[in-house]
Amino acid sequence: MYNFEIEKPATIADAVKALGRDEAQPLSGGQTLIPTLKARLAAPSVLVSLHGIDEMKGVCLDDDGRLCIGGATIHSVVAKEAQAHYPALAGLAARIGDPAVRNRGTIGGSVANNDPSACYPAAVLASGATVVTNKREIAADDYFQGMFATALEEGEIVTEVKFPIPQSAHYEKHIQPASRFPLVAAFVAKYADGVRVAITGASEDGVFRWTEAEEMLSNSFAADGLKGLTVDGSGMISDLHGSGEYRAHLVGVMTRRAVAAMGG
């Protein structure tokens, strides 16, 4: 690693201030960033640890009944504390990476990084969640902008994510056996006003909504109804773990299985 200073602010305001320094970069759980630094693929001069900011931690319900998760909340806390309110989300958090990673990795870090194979972006997008930053609130549909790309500006940090709680939901993932990230995963969330389906791991553009499936499921919530519905393999990631065609196939399988698990 190149050397850097670490600042450990206790408030969002102090974090934002620290991020104003030259070549400063936020450090959430570090489970992706630290391996990147080890490979010398990043050279920040200051890392601003968000770990000690209590106002960015915790799981609660807001007045609109949304499940609000602080950006610095670790996966293992979400796995426990979201269980009563949003079990599909808790289940997703409980299966990210491995237990030690879940004790450091945070929802804010995952959402800010927007790895095309990360789990959380699927839940955020399928839930139509709102990504809250130190500056503004961003609708999920506007937030994710392609592989590792988001609406975040320089120095902007994800302080909270607000999830409208669906009537039912399920996250189904097929893992890439080396990294244990999803090779393809589908998050299906059923709301009173319709069904949302988000797919992670598959596309070269990162997490995406499978709108054709959403339309069919919103009409008739049945896994069988999706049979025959396919996504185009041409925009899918193709690598040593699977071709684009295979990933496109898995998009259908994972979505159908998620729907079936929800009783559809």
């Binding site: 056996p177 080396a178 990294s179 244990r180 690598d239 040593l240 773990h241």
Partner: peptide, 16 residues
């Protein structure tokens, strides 16, 4: 080398 780390070289885990 495409399988140049444990991110791409699949080591058997207990659950496999």
């Amino acid at each position: 080398l495409l399988s140049a780390s444990y991110m791409d070289y699949a080591m058997p885990r207990a659950s496999d």
